[in-house]
Amino acid sequence: MKSASRLEKVLEKGEFAVTSECGPPRGADAEVIQKKGALLKGVVDAINVTDNQTSVVRMSSAASCFILKGMGLDPVLQMVTRDRNRIAIQSDILGAAAVGVNNILCLSGDHQVFGDHPKAKNVYDMDSIQLIHSVRKMRDEGTFIEGDEIKGAPKLFIGAACNPFADPFEIRVPRLAKKVAAGVDFVQTQCIYNIDKFEEWMKGVRDRGLHEKVHILAGVTPMKSVGMAKYMKNMVPGMDVPDEVIERMKGVPKEKRADEGITICVETIQKMKEIEGVRGVHIMAIEWEDRVPEIVERAGLSPRPDV
C-alpha cells in the first residue's frame, strides 16, 4: 500500500470504487461541509473536495478535508496549480498529510477568468503533470522538488483528472500515458454522456495496457434539467453532451426531468461497470449531494465493502 487511503484499499481489493465530491461553501461555516459529509458517509469510498472550483473563492480544500476527516470520511484533497507556487503547494501537501488526508487530486484548474476574481494574477509555477511528478517524488523518494530530504514523507494516493472528450482527441490516450509515467495512481474522468466516444477512448487505453497501470474511475453527473444539459453542452469547455441526451430529457414532463436525469446517470454507471478497465465511478452531483445515496443504491453499488 502506498497510503492509508480507503479508496486505495477498495481499488486494490478489486472492488468497483465509488467516489463523489463536495464543494466547500463561500463562507466560514463548517456546518455546510459537515452536512454534505453526513449525506455521503458510508455511501461512497472517498469524497473529493474541490479547490476553488471555476475560480470562485471558497473555503480552502485542505481545511474542508480536515473537517471531513474528523467525521471518519476519506477525503480527496483537490489541488490546482493556478493559485499556489511550488513552495505553497508542497507546504499544503505536508499539512494535509499531517492531519490525515490520504488522497490528492492533481489539477491545473480553471482559468481565473471564469471566477469571481477575474483580475487576479495566476501562478502556474507548474502544471498538473508536474504536480503528479512532484507528489510522487515527495512520497516515494521522500524529497522535495529541489531534492532536500523530507522528514516524514506525505503518504498520499495520487489522482488526476482526465478528459477523454477534449481536443485534440488523438492525444487523449498519450496524455493519460504521460500522467501514468509521472506516477498517477488513479484518474477520474470528465462527466461521461457520450458513451460511444468514451468506449473508443477506453479501447485506446487498453491497447496500450494503461488500464493495468492506473485505476480509471468514470465520471458521471446527473442533470437536473434541460437547461443544465444545454449549458453543459454549449458553455462548458471540453464537455461532450450528445443531442440524444438532451432530447431524452425534453421527452419527459418538466416535473419529472430531474428524476430522468438521475435515471440516465444510473444507466450510465451500469454501462461503465461493463467496460473492461473501468475500476469505479466518480459521481459529481453538483449541489445535489442528497441524491447521491439513491444513485449509488439504484446502480447496485451499495452497501460499500468493508476494507
Binding site: D110, N122, M126, D127, N163, A166, D167, P168, G238
Partner: peptide, 21 residues
C-alpha cells in the same frame, strides 16, 4: 497557452480553442 502549461493541453481545449475564450 493561457496557463503556460508545459505538458498541455488542459481539459478546457475545445475545437482547437482555449477555454478562456
Amino acid at each position: 497557452c493561457s496557463k503556460s502549461l508545459m505538458n498541455g493541453p488542459c481539459g478546457g481545449s475545445s475545437d482547437g480553442k482555449c477555454e478562456v475564450n
